[in-house]
Every structure is written in structure tokens, then in C-alpha cells.
Amino acid sequence: MSDWNLSDPEQRHQAAADYVLGLLSGADLTRFEALLSISHEAQRDVQQWREHLNILNDELKPQTPPSSVWKNIARATKPESLWSSLRFWQGTGVGVAAALVVSLSLWLSPASQELDERDIDYVYVIQGSGSQPEWIVNASLNQNKVFVETVQPDVLPNGQVCELWLMVKGQEPVSLGILPKSGINEVVIDPQWRNALQNSPLVITLEKPEGAPNGYQMGPVLARGQWTPVNKSI
């Protein structure tokens, strides 16, 4: 049918629109998909059109699905045993979904709402060199604990470890422990820094296997970050 000249940016952009609409077929589709697999520009065009055309979805009136749908999803995604749960979790399951929720909540609830502080979790995603999170740190005021969940940590040379710190203003930095190689670390929230938690930055340092002797003698800083509030109630 139509002969797209995909080396022309404008035609490529138009082909991307047709691709997102599902209007490419036959040889046109094959050619565009081949280009898409190698061209960042084509990928960006497709992504732009997905965003543009998403206004059609935004126009639809939300419809609440019946509760049976969630029950089936929960059943299908439930880990079968502790072992499979651990393996699943070290892969790309729980942690990444948590990271997705973080970015979602940033988009979905930009306005500050009046919420009971107990309904808010604070999350900090520790991103490694790749796009995968390495750990997810989740502070639950409700449970009075900070959970450090392992996702996919890099292995450090010479047995070195990463230590997580809460930088409470005017106080010795509080160690939230050495970042675990697997599983979850739990740290009980101390009344001394509970109220300061949400506004205190986080720091990750590189340490010898035993960790830093105290908050004033920490090793080199690898990363700094802030908590992201995540609203648990809807």
C-alpha cells in the first residue's frame, strides 16, 4: 500500500502514529517493526504517540470492576512458598512493582491531601548503575519499622558492604543498618527520630564488612536521596 520513507523524520513520525493506532499492516508493519527494534528515534516517536493518544483513554469515565477480579489477580500472583517467594522477589517482582507504585503516586496524587500520617509510608528506592532498583527502603510509621528489601544488589569487591544512614538534622547520623545481600532487614523506629524521619535525607556509604564504627566515622558516600511519601489509603 503506502510506501513510507522511514529515513525521513516526518514520515517516520507519521508511521509511528499509524503503528500505535494499529493501522500498519503487511510489509509496512514489518518494516516499521524492524526499524523500531534498532532505532531510538522510532522508539521515541512511538512513545510520544502513545502519550498523545492516551488522552482518548483519559476521556473514558472510570468504572469500578467487581471484587472478584482482584481476588483472581491476588491468587495468580501469590507466591507459593517461602522459597519461591524469595526467588521471585530477588528477581523483578515485588520490588519493581513497589518502584512503579512510587512513580505512580507521584503522578496520581500531586496535590497534598489531608491524611492521617499513619496512612502514609515513606519509600526510598536505591537505584544501582542499571535501571533496576537494588533495594527498596520502606518506612512504615504505622508498624513503627523501617524495612529494607533486597531486589537486585550488585556484588561489591573485597567483602565491602553498603550502609544506610538517616541524616537527622543536628544529631549523629542514625545507621539503618548494612544493606542486606538478600531478604528483608527491619529496623525499629526510635522515638528520638520518629518525628524527624520524613524530612531527613538518606545517605548510603561504602564500608568494610563490619560497617562504620559510628555516625561520625562513615566511609565514602555512594548515594544520597529523599523519602517519597506513598499514600496507602485511597
Binding site: L60, P62, T64, P65, L104, L108
Partner: peptide, 8 residues
């Protein structure tokens, strides 16, 4: 958060 929109 998202199922009513996705269901639509």
C-alpha cells in the same frame, strides 16, 4: 489506584 481507569 488504577483499576477503574483500566477497566474503562
Amino acid at each position: 489506584k488504577t483499576s477503574p481507569n483500566l477497566f474503562a
